[in-house]
Design a protein around this nucleic acid. Sequence first.
RNA 1: GUGGCCAUAGCUCAAUGGUAGAGCAGUGGCCUGUGGAGCCACUGAUACGGGUCCGAUCCCCGUUGGCCACCCCA
Length: 444
Amino acid sequence: MPINKPDDKPVKPAKKAATPQLVRGMHDILPTDWPWWNFIFNKVEEVAMCYGYERIETPILEKTQLFTRAIGNTTDIVEKEMFSFVDQSGDHLSLRPEYTAGIARAYIEHGMLSLPQPVKMFSYGPHFRHERPQAGRYRQFWQFNFEVLGETEAVADSQLILAAAALFERLQLPVTFAINSVGCPDCRPKYRQVLIDYYRTKRSEMSDEAKKRLTRNPLRLLDSKEEALIEINKNAPQCVDHLCENCRNHFVKLLEHLDEVEFTYQLSPNLVRGIDYYTRTVFEVWGEDGAASAFGGGGRYDNLIEEIGGRATAAVGFACGIERIVAELKKKQVPVPPRQRPDIFIASLGEAARKKALKLFEDLRRQGVTVAESFTKSGLKSQLETANKIGASFALVIGQKELMDDTIIIRDMENGIQETVDIQKVSLEIAKRLEHKAARSVPA
RNA sequence: GUGGCCAUAGCUCAAUGGUAGAGCAGUGGCCUGUGGAGCCACUGAUACGGGUCCGAUCCCCGUUGGCCACCCCA
């Protein structure tokens, strides 16, 4: 039965669908991006290994309540930035806006308190916040994250900061560490009141937005970028002057540890963070433009695990935004290992040679050589062009002539020198050349 | 969430109230025998929806997306 009758009217072409677009704030990580991403992941893993962190990955989806309890109801993250929904079974779920809550949940749920303490774990993966996107700010963004759970001593904070510093050193990015202490439930409320009293005397100079915040989350006034507030903040009472004795000792010890290893940091009395669970130590990692170019931050969260239902467990951690680091690596032109290039490209001329080439591809692949081909291209020129574009080290050429006398041509793509060898010996010859090449490229 | 700027081919950029053009990239050919600056040809676009108009890629409105600032943060 004919599919089309001759007199069928041509089907009216359907209205062209809208060009598919990314969901707002999402982004693709393309093959050309991966050298930077892999570079970062590799450095994260290296540093994690040096400092004794093991990898953990928790789900992207958690109960909404986990985040509201952990992060705080009056934070922007919880109030307006979470991707939350009710699933088919009526569960209230959210895409994770940060790592720590999920890690703390896993710590409790898997009884990690019975492991030798502290438990040090690292992670990297995507997170979601429903904010207005702009440069360095996405709705799906990646973070790497380091957590030390089950340790109250300031030495843990210090070493965590040093690990973060070691990482940025390996990433070859100059950064500043801004450090502060925000106290604990004993001393923070008192400081908070002192702060409120101070700002009340300045009400006439404050914007409506700032006044609103004064009642909701006065600490956050401290790191405002509003010009009027920056001026007001210059004389604001500092948290470090109102710490209780324990918090003060903790902070002093932290700084002493850092001084001990001659680590340079910046004391930042106005540094507060947008998440409620922080206690005592808070810090941020800044690029060259200061707070505006923060790569990440972290701090201590001694009450979080108890808060969400575990046994009281002190902990400290930090996280950084990977997209921001990728952007900075590109901007600074930090050299990263290039995309993988195949060792060998097989070019074939003619049907018979192509069959042989297919076999050769499999043989070499088994041998552990990375091989590329372009079986569907016919001309030798276009095949070599392809070999060149994908950066193969050597091309193998097999055509009629070689087929007849059981040989193959090995062409060095770097200098164009080529040699005809017995096809039986091709694996051996290739292995030899690759080894030679590898030896030459290793810096002395 | 608020405000501003913007959207033409895969990329970078032209042009026009009256048939949208280039470079690069891609594909094919010259070429069953040699890539990293050869020659030739081809493919490919006005984000989406509506309005004004004889006619809209251009003017207007809306939507979507991007960038920037605010906000916030990673």
